[in-house]
Amino acid sequence: MKSLEAKVVVLGSQGVGKTSVVIRYVGGMFSKAVSPTIGASFFTYKMTLEQYRVKLQVWDTAGQERFRSMAPMYYRKANAAMLMYDITSLESFYDIKDWVKELKKNVDTPIVLCLLGNKSDLDSGRKVSKEDAEEYAASIDALFYETSALKNMGIEDAFLQVSKNLINLYETVPNSGMGGMLGHAQQAPPDIFSSGMTSGDVAAGGMKLTDGGKDSSRSDGNCPC
């Protein structure tokens, strides 16, 4: 049994239900009175999947504008990003495009993207069609799910698929600081990320593999991309 530790960041506008979805997934419950997130909240979730013990470190970020500038701190080292909008708010869907732009600009490690259309229980007030969202998700090579934290729909599937992709990503590129499965779709992300971060830094923020107590074969070697 191998174990895998991955960081997942949840991004999206204020009030789309990021915390509700995360709490539904991690805590298995729904509360009507979820208070707006301050800064960012940190959750962990453990599961066993395909011979892996997967530990997800989920960063549930605040959607409020004043915390917007903190976001790089969370997505820079993330292995997966859940981009969430509210199907009853066109604006929240458009905001996703800004997020994607920002991620492409600032993240040069492979990252699993997953688009989530939340509040699918409010179908009568729907403003974003499933087709549009699917099409957009395909164009950015992201997974796509419509979810409902209230009715507990789609969330389990979304996180499961993200985890599968993370394992896949890990297996195709054992030193996770490198472009792999997302590389082809994102057409080798442009190297605008001029943080001066060393590869050691990237690896530290990347996925960690501990193989039955032995050190992993992960190398902090040079990044080919």
Binding site: G27, P36, T37, I38, A40, S41, F42, F67
Partner: peptide, 17 residues
């Protein structure tokens, strides 16, 4: 006041400026 006014800290560990 920060602690008092927000329920959000009760859900999980938080990190905020």
């Amino acid at each position: 006041n920060l602690i008092n006014a927000s329920e959000s800290f009760k859900a999980a560990e938080s990190w905020t400026p």
